[in-house]
Design a protein around this nucleic acid. Sequence first.
RNA 1: CGGAGCGUGGUGUAGUGGUAGCACGCAUGCUUUGGGAGCAUGCAGCCCGAGUUCGAAUCUCGGCGCUCCGACCA
Length: 406
Amino acid sequence: MRFSDFFAKTLRTPPRDEESVNSKLLIQAGFVNKLAAGVYTFLPLGLRVLDKIENIVREEMNAAGGAELLMPALHPAENWSKTGRWQSFDALFKTKGKNGSEYALGPTHEEVIYPLLKHFVSSYKDLPLALYQIQTKFRDEPRAKSGLLRSREFRMKDLYSFHADVKDRDRYYEVMRKAYLKIFKRLDLGAVQTKASGGTFSEFSAEFQVVSEAGEDIIYYCQSCRKAVNKEITSQKAPKCYDCGGETEEKRAIEVGNIFPLKKKFAEDFNLTFKDKEGRDRLVEAGCYGLGTSRAMGTIVETHHDKKGIVWPESAAPFRVHLVEIQVKAEKVYQALVEEGVEVLYDDRKEATAGEKFADADLIGIPWRAVISEKTGDEIELKRRDLEDTKLVSVRELIKKFKHAG
RNA sequence: CGGAGCGUGGUGUAGUGGUAGCACGCAUGCUUUGGGAGCAUGCAGCCCGAGUUCGAAUCUCGGCGCUCCGACCA
């Protein structure tokens, strides 16, 4: 992709009214633009990152036996009245159609997927099921804050699993738990599994928390077993680790995922039943597994940046290489990389000076920078975003290095 | 929803009652290019509404918006 075609516009200074690191950097570097508090446009650069993250989530959900679907974001009020959440869900955005009919903008999808499954589930043979979507969610947060970390319109993966009994539900919960750890590892987010309150559905849930000063949650973290407990369910300061009994440390953290059993709550509301082997009607057991993909993007920026800008992990970076030309055209090298399928951002701007191009490369934070100039001769100067040293490589070596992008 | 701060071109800012200015940006031209270039000529702005005043970006009131703290986070 050519810089000049890519709608990549950076700002020399971050917007003044932004405080959080992720919003400052993402806006300054041209990944997102804010329309209103907690409402963002994902610009071409930002969308590429979001897509990278969502594809990783998608791969791991598929690997865990999940089937992807896409549910509506516009929900008839009736479904929400049935569960009582039309009244009780404070952050529900409500709207009206022309004929006076009322709708909710989906903040979560139990109210859609349970009625959906009534059409498809009737026997124990139809279970288990794991269905997920990656979608834009709406929550009327009392206070949107911290850029992508708490917004009113955001991206989320939500998977719902349905089972004939508790044992099978627990089995799948473990499958999901492992899938989550794998996703966060791939995103280079050191997410810590954290015991937390289960809200209205069950006693406990497992949150995945990333230690960061930007976080809103306080967790007590045990170094030795890499597990934590959320402050909301502790009655004492720095409790002993619930797993190994060791010392814990108090940390601020960002909740990037949350998995919990729904039990039979919504199955009761919608009367979602199946016939067991004896022909009796039984309520479906379920689990719910959420992961905020746009929040994960903000979290990566919070944990992967330096004074000059963002330092993307390879897995989430919008491109693999940032090709910078100074004086000498890099067109041929660009074409060669494109032909090999390498994701490359080619800074072909004529009007930008060398210093400006370097500053933008650092700000945008693509993991590798390749420079072609009078100085480099027939070779190319290669530099990792997070390291100072550079080395000269031939065009062939460059292509070889990036050809088999993992 | 309570509290605090802030609202001036696309971005960052100066201006505390008297001609809205600077830098970046953008446009055009020429010169430039290894860490945010130079010259020239242009473009573009006081959040909205009411009030006070001869005169309001500035003072008053009301609204709206953004950020932060708190409450909330199913």
